[in-house]
């Protein structure tokens, strides 16, 4: 084998090996499309009128942990995670607050949902599309954990558990 051929074969072999290695090590399941640029930044503004009729502004809750939960009553995993949110809220009344943002839903349905499933935190309804865009919501349900300084520290999607949320506000990696 001449030196040039050897060099060429070597280059091709290395590139091919790297290529195979790349495909072999990439795990498809780990890469759910979550792309959110919100984590690590100040939480986008979130204002509106709650279901109960009072004005809401996320900035008023500085100093507490806030879990901003995007959900809809027509979304089965949202219904499934709800008890976990209730448990989390009950466990952390002193230092954390849950806020739910209903997406593409009616006041009546949301009110009925909370009557049935519990939960006494503020719920924003109506025109919430802009908020979900601001947070970068892809697929309901999604929860964003905002720390006492107003920074989004985590995004949890596809149904949360109370333990996961607890872990985040306790500063443990969930």
């Amino acid at each position: 084998m001449s030196r040039r051929t050897a060099a060429l074969v070597g280059v091709v072999a290395v590139v091919a090996a790297a290529f195979v290695w790349l495909l072999a090590t990439h795990s498809p399941s780990a890469s759910t499309p979550t792309g959110s640029a919100a984590v690590g930044r100040l939480a986008p503004a979130l204002t509106g009128t709650t279901l109960a009729g009072s004005a809401f502004d996320l900035d008023d809750l500085r100093g507490d942990w806030v879990v901003v939960n995007f959900f809809a009553t027509w979304c089965p995993p949202c219904v499934a995670e709800h008890p976990e949110l209730v448990r989390f809220a009950d466990d952390n009344r002193d230092r954390a607050q849950v806020v739910s943002v209903a997406f593409d839903d009616t006041d009546e349905r949301v009110a009925a949902f909370f009557r049935e499933n519990g939960g006494d935190w503020p719920v924003l309804t109506g025109d919430t599309g802009a908020a979900s865009l601001d947070y970068g919501v892809v697929k309901l349900p999604e929860s964003y954990v905002v720390d006492p300084n107003g920074t989004v520290v985590a995004k949890l999607d596809g149904g949360v558990t109370a333990d996961e949320l607890q872990a985040v506000i306790d500063g443990r990696t969930p």
Binding site: P33, G35, S36, A37, A38, L133, D134, Y135, G136, V138
Partner: peptide, 9 residues
Amino acid sequence: FAQRYGQEV
């Protein structure tokens, strides 16, 4: 959109 959803969008 890129600012909210990252480069991936």
